[in-house]
Simulated scan of single mutants.
Amino acid sequence: MHGPVAIVAAMHEELSALLAQMPDEQRVRVAGRDFWVGHLQGQPVVAVLSRIGKVAAAVTATVLLERFGVRAVVFTGVAGGLAPGVRVGDVVVATELLQHDLDASPIFPKYEVPLMGLSRFVADRAIGDALSGVAAGVLRDPVALTGRAAVEEFGLQSPKVHRGLLASGDRFVSTTAESEALRRDLPDALAVEMEGAAVAQVCHDYGVPFAAMRTISDRADDEAHGDFARFVSLVASRYSLALVGAWLATLPAVS
Results as ranks from 00 to 15, higher is better:
residue 71 R to P: 07
residue 88 V to H: 11
residue 105 S to L: 06
residue 119 S to D: 00
residue 27 R to G: 07
residue 94 A to F: 07
residue 42 G to D: 04
residue 85 G to I: 07
residue 94 A to H: 05
residue 63 V to W: 03
residue 49 L to K: 09
residue 30 V to I: 06
residue 75 F to Y: 15
residue 39 H to M: 12
residue 74 V to G: 02
residue 96 E to T: 06
residue 93 V to P: 13
residue 111 Y to R: 00
residue 97 L to H: 09
residue 93 V to E: 02
residue 30 V to D: 13
residue 47 A to I: 01
residue 70 V to R: 04
residue 127 I to P: 08
residue 26 Q to D: 09
residue 31 A to W: 07
residue 127 I to D: 02
residue 124 D to K: 01
residue 72 A to M: 09
residue 113 V to I: 14
residue 64 L to C: 15
residue 119 S to V: 00
residue 89 G to M: 07
residue 110 K to H: 04
residue 94 A to P: 07
residue 100 H to D: 01
residue 88 V to A: 13
residue 56 A to K: 08
residue 47 A to L: 03
residue 96 E to M: 11
residue 62 T to E: 15
residue 66 E to Q: 13
residue 72 A to P: 13
residue 55 V to E: 11
residue 53 G to W: 10
residue 124 D to G: 02
residue 44 P to S: 06
residue 57 A to N: 04
residue 110 K to D: 00
residue 62 T to Q: 12
residue 81 G to F: 11
residue 82 L to H: 04
residue 102 L to W: 02
residue 109 P to H: 01
residue 54 K to S: 03
residue 46 V to N: 08
residue 54 K to V: 04
residue 64 L to H: 02
residue 71 R to G: 13
residue 54 K to H: 10
residue 107 I to V: 15
residue 38 G to W: 14
residue 72 A to R: 15
residue 41 Q to V: 02
residue 120 R to K: 04
residue 79 A to D: 10
residue 47 A to T: 06
residue 61 A to N: 05
residue 85 G to R: 07
residue 85 G to H: 11
residue 69 G to V: 10
residue 116 M to L: 11
residue 102 L to I: 02
residue 110 K to R: 13
residue 113 V to E: 01
residue 51 R to M: 14
residue 77 G to D: 02
residue 122 V to M: 13
residue 80 G to M: 10
residue 73 V to M: 11
residue 101 D to G: 05
residue 26 Q to A: 10
residue 107 I to D: 12
residue 86 V to T: 01
residue 69 G to C: 11
residue 61 A to Y: 07
residue 117 G to R: 00
residue 111 Y to P: 00
